[in-house]
Each structure stands twice: as structure tokens, then as C-alpha cells.
Nucleic acid binder design. Structure first.
Length: 916
RNA sequence: GGACGAUUAGCUCAGCUGGUUAGAGCGUGCGAUUCACAUUCGCAAGGUCACUGGUUCGAAUCCAGUAUCGUCCACCA
């Protein structure tokens, strides 16, 4: 069957994908005796659209998993989606508001809103599934998971209870990042600082001058803080009080000395607002100072603001300044003060720090058993990277990771949104006022409540039988994502049995037993902290295992000009689905892999994708050529079985022996490259081999003298090696050339080396033939010989005459030579132009038409290059230090090169002398 | 303020543990259209490897510093 002239991915990809899926090729077996190899797919948001970030991750992981599968491992790639708590709730609420609802949370209530979001997710989840398939991802769909499914909820609750029991989870009044717009807390890592220019005010505050960009928070300020060593203020002692005229009348203020104050900044004095600033909060905690709330959760001023109460901060700010001005307390205003404001990276709302009662994970408490020691979560996280249990690629991210751990504060895990795993904690309404566990509450300004932490829903207080209420908060979405590598491997059925402990559930889950820890976690470096670090934290704690052995961090895909692709600049956006439609998934995959090194950003643009589309088409046409050769020879490709035939290497042509040798080398390089996760380099190697050696030389050389067995063998090998990179086209072509007994390529075994087929000498000899042909072509072009015109060539080659004679047909055909004479010795024919290779002289005879100027120019250029080279080597060899210190092999190599170059130079100079 | 990365051909990038006459793709110039492919083929032009020092027999590669760009972290009231 003859192939179409050009490859059409649209007629191939969906069909091939369906074939793979139906054949069960993606499915892994927990009871297999093969070595397991697992990847957990970072779950895309359930409501999302596939973007380039997903595309690159799918391409990389698919290469890893296909390679592992072909190498005979039990390869499992677990797909899934994320409920993306804040993001998803936002999307739905925004839509409801668009549809006319004023306050969806209030109007619908918790249950109805959550049900609506669940419906929405259910509907849109199918989109991403389809899109993942479009990329060719060979993941095991029978094991698809969802971060918010009941089984995972059970595990989330279980881990929460364990951690609470170990005192690693506590509830406390702490300063948190509050987003007044979204009405929820945000973790430290989700804060993005934005530069802003605002007026900067300096006020008189008693005997001091204090500065701020936020006058509206200053109502409750009654502490002035300065550095204990600040000589300007030695007159003031810690604890001194004084009276100051302030916004709403006189206040009594206290002097606090604290070493955290930067003396060189401004006046070196500041007032503090502990309720609305993390730094101030810490100072207040250190000195046991009072804290007062000034701004409410909606961002409005509280009664403490007096006449300003109820106003939004934006509205109050100028009015407060006005009032201070009227009291002549404004010392100066700097209009264009540049500072950073904290915003929520999801949604962009301005963050207003607040003291709130929240749930935290204690990262410093030493109570985790790890490697027979008791450590804190921080220490475990540090240990597994430090001791190489987990390797990060590229390694430099270790430093970033350690730095992050060093600065890590307790993780606030509660969120005041409804879409997510609910905090599994219950409060007795009757036992209110009683203290449940000592140390559970950290701030005794607030009343205590009897608290129960429970995996199973509770409705009665076990102590008094009174009614209980559940905690209103949900958990940070990363809490459940942090369990992903193993929670997805726990048998869903097992989680329904509430009598089982976590340990028992793990023991009863064959998938977990077989496939965890996973082999490699592949994700973008931008979520190293959010996710990778937290998986390490939670998984080591909960299961006693590391979640993965290798972390492969890919870079960001940027627009052609290096900018981040963003919705605000639609012209920079590349939609992977459009690109698949236009160029095919294989081309898109290659364009994102080759030229992209781990941890580094890479630019993508359409021409690049088109370039790889061309490559795919090249491969297609090479296969088409091989099939045509088989047809012409009356051979069925399926019957070709190089491996089973006893080939006498000597019976093969030079080109055959050389390509077999090169194919073995290629196989070695690709295998090693993929083992070492060097995907870009390996992709380039395959590209170059296919196009330059196989197509441009071997196929050309085989025209007229095709050895179909070798052709088919090399093509098969090439398809196999390329399959992880471009699975669709290779699978499609495989069907045409595969051995009769073979199945689909996805299940094919990775090639084994055949050292018998190595023949370095043949390869080197072919290289000489290639060089001769190229040199003749160059001579032709230089001498303006018309492409169709056949020429006469004389070759004088002392040692290689035999080789070149044996290949004279190839030289004649590929260099368009009609009259080729090859001799061991001889003189330059008259009326000819010359070119030289080591030990080989080539003369193009062209009676009366030789352009001597061009020949001279060409030879002179080469002469110059050679002279530079020769003098470079001579200097080296004349250097005693070099001769005594350089390795012997290098010296003899240099000597040989020198001799070769000198000889060639002599020939060129001889000829140049004859030209003048 | 701290850390990390980048700087190699017009553009986008390779170049692993120091020894190459520094590579690729795209683009450019010239030429080619029966016989796998114009999504093609042939030939060519194009680089003092950001700069300054150092280590070394030898540096694009290792070290130090400088400059420019980028990213992350911290955040100053």
C-alpha cells in the first residue's frame, strides 16, 4: 500500500489514539512482575482549558512513560483533575453575578452553591480530558482521579486527624493574608507583590515623626517603636509613656525598643498596627502589646475610627490626611513614593492583613519519625533533598528549595471559601467555654470551645450529647494536592471502610504497594514551593515514603519576544489545540521539547512548530520511499527480518554497513539520553540522524542499489527510537513496515544493541565518500557548472583510490559526474579546477571555462584557515609544557592532524603557485 | 536587600566532567522542478563565544569581578 504524498495528522491522530486506548496499552497492572515506573500527572484544573503549560508537561511526561513502557517496565501514568478551590469558586460566582445574582453566597447558601459548582465542574471536566488525549498522552484513564472525590476526601480527613493528633495542626489567632474581595485567607506563597506609587506622609506624633502610606490604619496606634541603640532617642526609655495629639483627639502612647527597627530608614521611629501588619504583629507578640482591629473583613473602618467608621479605606485615606492637616500634624508629603503592595496572585485583589482564627500546620515541631530520628517537617523536607533521596533536575533548584525552607513559616491551611475539603473539626455548642486541649488556642483573648477532630461526620458531642457544628472553613487546595502521588493509588473501595486506619488502607491498596514512590515528578519550576515541597512534606509524614525519586522541572513557554504569554496580550498567546489542528500533535510536541532545557524558559512561535511539521513529513516521505523500494523489489516489508538473517557483513555495501553502524550508535545515544532525562539533546540527535544521514545520504545512496532489508531495518529502528517523541506518525508508519508478528509500536520492545553490526571502518570510509561528493559539488557551484550538466573529474588519491573506485557509481550519480578517473598517482589535468581533501586531490576538467579567480579565491580561503590551524598545532607541539603534561593520546592525535593538514596545505600552495 | 539564571551567527538555541578548524534550526544569497518529499534538494555567506582579570601547557567551558537583561525570595514602617 502506498502512502499519501504528505502526512496528514488530522486523518491519523484521533484514530491512532483510540486504537491505543482500546488496546489497553495505557493500562498498568499492579500485579505485574515487571519493575514499576510511575508518574503522577499534575492535575489540570477541572474547569480549565488546555494551555501550553499543560502541553509541555504532557509531552515531557509522555516521553518518559513511553520510554519506560518500551523498556519493559510496568509503566503507570495516573491522570486526574484538580478542584482548584479558589479559582473554581471564583469562576462560578463571577458567572452567577453576570447572570444577575447580587450576592450568590448569601442568596444560595452553602449547600446550593457547592452543588452548583460541582455540576459545573462535572460538565467542564470532559473538556480537559479530551484535550489531554489530543496531545497523545498515554495515561491510564481507568485510574483517573479527582482531588475532590470522596476517596480523596477520606484521605484528607485522615491526614488532618493524624497531624492534629501529633500536634502538627493547630488552631490559632494569627496574622494572615486576608483578601477582602474574595473573603478568604491566602497562603504566603500565593501573595504577589506589585509595585505602586502612592503619597508618603510624615506626621507629628508626640515628640516623634512617623511616616506611612496608610494613614487610615493609624487610629489605634499607641506604641512608638525604635531601635534600642538609636542615639537620637536615648532620652526615651522602653516603657515610657507620653501624650500625643492624634486623629481623633489625644492618645496615650508607649515607647517600645525593638532591635528589628531599621535605624537608617526615615526617622527610625514607627508606630505599629499589629492587627494589620505581619511585622507589627511580631513586635507586638514579642512585647506582649495590645492589638486592636481597625479594619473589618470587608475593608471598612470600625468604630475605633470615630467619624470615619464605616468608610472604605480608599475613601477614608484622604479624609484622614485632611483632618491631620487641619491639626497641623502633617510634616510632609512625598507624592511619588514607590513601594510594594501585596496582592492575591489568584484574582489580584489587594491583601489586607488581619488577625484571624485559622488552622495551621506547624513546620517546626519535632515529632516526625524519619530515618529513625525525630524531626520537624522542615527538617524532613530538607533531609530528603540534602541526602539525595530525591534528585531535582536541574540541580541548582536545590538551593532555591533550601532557601525557601529556611524562611518557611507555619502553613495556614484554612480558607473561608466553600468549594473544597471541609476542615474535619466539630465544635460542641453546649460545652462552649471549656478548654479542650491545652495549647490548642494561642491567644487567650478569645473564648474557647470544645473541639473534636474527626474523620467521620459527627452530629452529637461525645461528652455531653449536645449538638455540634462543623468548622465553616475549607482546606487550602494544596493540602489535598500534596497527597496526590499516593492518594491516587489508594483503592477507592478501601476508603469506604471507616474502620481502617491510613496505614491499613495503604496496605490494602495494591496500586499503592506496587507503584509508590513514583519515579519522576515532572512539573514547572514555578510550583516547586506550592506543590513539590508540600508533596514532600505531606507524603513523608503520612506514608513514611518519599513521593518521587526525581523531580524534573521544566521552564516556562514564552512568546517569541520573551514575554510571558498572557490573556492581556492575546497576540502573544499560542493555543496548543490550534497548533495541533494546524501542524499535528507530534510537531507541537517536538517544538516544545527540542531546544528546551530543564529549568530554563524557552520561546515558542509558529515557524518553529512548522519546522517540526516539516520534519514529521520528512520521516513520512522517507518511509514512503522505503515502501516504494520494497514494492519495486517485490518484497513485503513485513517479511523483512534483518535480525533473523545471518548477514555476512562483507556482503553488504559500504553504505549499508555504515548506516548499520550509525544506527547502533544512535540507539546507544538515544537510550542513554532518555535515561538521563536529556530530552532536548536526544531529540536533536534523532532529528539530525533522520534528516542528514538517513535521508540525505543513505536513501540517496541506496537509489538504484537498494537493500530493502537494511532499509526496513533502519527505518523500523528509527520509528522505535522516535516513538516517545512523536508517537502518532511513528505508530502510523509502523503499521506499514513492522515485522509480521509485531503488534503496535506503543507496546514494542526498546531495541537492543547489536555489536556485530558496528563497523567503524565502514562508517569512516563512507564519510570520505561523502566528503568527496560534497567537494565536487562545491567545485561545480564555484565554477558555475549548470546543475544538469555532467562533468569530468579526475581524482588522485594515494591511499583511498581503491575505496573511491569501489564507490565510483555513487560519486558519479550524486555529484553528476560522467567521466570519473581515479588513480593512485597522477598530475593535474590541464584546464581544470582543483579541490583537496586529506590525501585526495580532485580536478574538475572544464576546457576553456575554468574561472581561475574563483578557484584562487576558494583555495586562498582554505589556505588561510589551514595556516591558522597548522600554526596553532605547531605552537602546541613545540610547547614543552604541553608535550610533558598533555595526555599522550591527544599528542599523537594532534600530530596526525598536523601531518594531514600540512600535506593538504602543500597541495593547495602548489596549485596556487601554478595559478599565478 | 538576598539568591538564581541568561549573555555564543540577523533571530531562536545546543555545546555534558576544559583539548572541536565553535554547531543546529529558522532567516539570508545563489542555483535546481519527471521518477520519497518544494512541508524539497544543492552550494554559500555569517561568530574576536558580553567585558576585564585569574587558574592552566591549553578556557565558549573552571574561578573572581564588571555590565546588561530576566526570574524568584524578602520587604522598610
Amino acid at each position: 500500500m502506498l502512502l499519501e504524498k504528505a502526512y496528514d495528522p488530522k486523518r491519523t491522530e484521533d484514530r491512532i489514539y483510540a486504537m491505543w486506548e482500546q488496546s489497553g496499552a495505557f493500562r498498568a497492572d499492579a500485579h505485574s512482575s515487571k519493575e514499576p515506573f510511575t508518574i503522577s500527572m499534575p492535575p489540570p484544573n477541572a474547569t480549565g482549558q488546555l494551555h501550553l503549560g499543560h502541553a509541555v508537561m504532557l509531552a515531557l511526561q509522555d516521553i518518559f512513560i513511553r520510554f519506560a513502557r518500551m523498556r519493559g517496565k510496568e509503566a503507570l501514568w495516573v491522570p486526574g483533575t484538580d478542584h482548584a478551590a479558589i479559582a473554581t469558586e471564583n469562576v462560578v460566582i463571577r458567572q452567577l453575578k453576570k447572570d444577575g445574582m447580587k450576592d450568590p453566597r448569601k442568596e444560595l447558601g452553602r449547600e446550593k452553591l457547592v452543588a452548583l459548582i460541582a455540576d459545573f465542574v462535572e460538565q467542564s471536566r470532559g473538556t480537559i480530558r479530551k484535550q489531554v488525549r489530543k496531545m497523545g498522552a498515554s495515561c491510564d484513564w481507568s485510574r483517573e482521579r479527582y482531588t475532590f472525590e470522596p476517596a480523596l476526601n477520606r484521605l484528607v480527613n485522615e491526614v488532618f486527624c493524624m497531624m492534629h493528633g501529633d500536634g502538627l495542626i493547630y488552631r490559632g489567632h494569627r496574622i494572615v493574608n486576608w483578601d477582602p474581595g474574595l473573603q478568604t485567607t491566602v497562603s504566603d506563597d500565593e501573595i504577589a507583590y506589585k509595585e505602586e506609587t502612592s503619597p508618603y506622609y510624615t506626621f507629628q506624633y508626640g515628640p516623634f515623626q512617623i511616616s506611612t502610606v496608610r494613614p487610615e490604619t493609624k487610629f489605634g496606634d499607641k506604641y512608638v517603636v525604635m531601635h534600642p541603640d538609636d542615639e537620637r532617642y536615648t532620652a526615651f526609655k522602653h516603657g515610657d509613656t507620653f501624650e500625643a495629639e492624634w486623629i481623633n483627639g489625644p492618645v496615650r502612647a508607649t515607647v517600645i525598643k525593638d532591635a528589628s527597627i531599621d535605624m537608617s530608614f526615615g526617622t527610625g521611629v514607627m508606630t505599629i498596627t499589629p492587627w494589620h501588619s505581619a511585622v507589627d504583629f511580631e513586635i507586638a507578640e514579642r512585647h506582649g502589646l495590645e492589638k486592636e482591629q481597625i479594619i473589618d473583613e470587608k475593608g471598612r473602618l470600625l468604630p475605633i475610627a470615630g467619624e470615619f467608621a464605616g468608610m472604605s479605606i480608599e475613601k477614608a485615606r484622604p479624609l484622614v490626611v485632611e483632618k491631620l492637616q487641619s491639626k497641623i500634624l502633617v510634616v510632609k508629603v512625598e507624592e511619588n513614593y514607590v513601594h510594594n503592595i501585596a496582592t492575591n496572585s489568584r484574582g489580584g485583589g489587594i491583601i489586607e492583613p488581619q488577625i484571624k482564627l485559622q488552622w495551621f500546620i506547624d513546620v517546626n515541631k519535632e515529632c516526625v519519625q524519619w530515618k529513625n530520628q525525630t524531626m520537624s517537617l522542615k527538617e524532613v523536607m530538607h533531609d530528603v533533598i540534602h541526602h539525595g533521596d530525591i534528585a531535582i533536575i536541574p540541580e541548582r533548584f536545590n538551593r532555591t528549595y533550601f532557601h525557601w525552607i529556611d524562611n518557611l513559616r507555619d502553613w495556614c491551611i484554612s480558607r473561608q471559601i466553600w468549594w473544597g475539603h471541609r476542615v474535619p473539626v466539630y465544635y460542641c455548642t453546649k460545652c462552649a467555654g471549656a478548654v479542650s486541649k491545652p495549647g490548642e488556642m494561642t491567644n487567650d483573648q478569645f473564648p474557647m470551645t470544645k473541639t473534636f477532630v474527626s474523620v467521620q461526620p459527627m452530629d452529637r458531642c461525645p461528652d455531653c450529647g449536645g449538638p455540634v457544628t462543623q468548622d465553616e472553613d475549607t482546606l487550602d487546595t494544596w493540602f489535598s494536592s500534596a497527597l496526590w502521588t499516593w492518594s491516587t493509588l489508594v483503592d477507592s473501595k478501601v476508603t469506604e471502610d471507616l474502620s481502617l486506619s491510613l496505614e491499613e488502607m495503604l496496605a490494602k491498596s495494591p496500586d499503592y504497594q506496587t507503584f509508590h514512590p513514583t519515579a519522576v515528578m515532572e512539573t514547572g519550576y514555578d510550583i516547586l514551593f506550592f506543590w513539590v515541597a508540600r508533596m514532600i512534606l505531606m507524603t513523608t509524614y503520612a506514608t513514611g515514603q518519599i513521593p518521587f525519586k526525581t523531580v524534573y522541572l521544566h521552564g516556562l513557554i514564552r512568546a517569541r519576544d520573551g514575554r510571558k504569554m498572557s490573556k492581556s496580550h492575546p497576540e502573544t498567546m499560542i493555543d496548543p489545540l490550534d497548533m495541533i489542528e494546524k501542524y499535528g500533535a507530534d510537531a507541537l510536541r517536538l517544538s516544545m521539547i527540542v531546544g528546551q532545557s530543564p529549568g530554563n524558559d524557552a520561546r515558542l512561535y509558529e515557524e518553529k512548530i512548522a519546522g517540526y511539521r516539516n520534519f514529521i513529513n520528512k520521516l513520512w516521505n522517507a518511509s514512503r520511499f522505503v515502501l516504494m523500494q520494497c514494492e519495486a523489489a517485490g518484497v513485503t516489508p513485513a517479511d523483512c527480518a534483518m535480525e533473523n538473517e545471518q548477514w555476512e557483513m562483507d556482503a553488504l555495501s559500504l553504505a549499508d554497513r555504515a548506516i548499520l553502524h550509525a544506527t547502533e550508535l544512535l540507539t546507544e545515544d538515544v537510550t542513554k539520553g532518555l535515561e538521563e532525562y536529556r530530552l532536548s539533546e536526544t531529540g536533536e540527535r534523532l532529528y539530525g540522524f533522520t534528516w542528514d544521514l538517513f535521508c540525505d545520504w543513505y536513501l540517496e545512496l541506496s537509489k538504484g542499489t537498494a537493500n530493502t532489508a537494511v532499509l526496513v531495518h533502519v527505518l523500523r529502528r528509527l520509528l522505535t527510537l522516535l516513538h516517545p517523541y512523536c508517537p502518532f506518525v511513528t505508530e502510523e508508519l509502523w503499521a506499514q513496515v513492522k515485522p509480521a508478528e509485531a503488534g503496535s509500536l506503543i507496546k514494542e520492545e526498546w531495541p537492543k544493541m547489536h555489536s556485530d553490526w558496528k563497523d567503524q571502518e565502514a562508517f569512516d570510509q563512507l564519510q570520505i565518500v561523502i566528503d568527496v561528493i560534497t567537494a565536487i559539488r562545491k567545485l561545480r557551484t564555484e565554477q558555475n557548472v549548470e546543475p544538469q550538466k555532467a562533468v569530468a573529474i579526475t581524482i588522485v588519491a594515494e591511499t583511498q583510490a581503491g575505496l573511491l573506485s569501489s564507490q565510483s557509481d555513487h560519486i558519479k550519480r550524486l555529484a553528476k559526474v560522467s567521466d570519473l578517473s581515479i588513480a593512485v598517482t597522477g598530475k593535474q589535468p590541464t584546464e581544470s579546477a582543483s579541490a583537496f581533501l586529506p590525501g585526495i586531490e580532485m580536478y574538475l576538467s572544464l576546457a576553456g571555462l575554468i574561472d581561475k579567480d574563483k578557484e584562487r579565491a576558494s583555495l586562498q580561503k582554505e589556505q588561510e584557515q589551514l595556516q591558522r590551524f597548522v600554526s596553532g598545532i605547531q605552537a602546541k607541539l613545540g610547547n614543552e609544557q604541553f608535550m610533558s603534561k598533555a595526555p599522550a593520546a591527544l599528542i599523537s592525535e594532534q600530530k596526525a592532524k598536523l601531518q594531514e593538514a600540512e600535506e593538504k596545505l602543500r597541495k593547495i600552495e602548489e596549485r596556487l603557485g601554478g595559478l599565478t
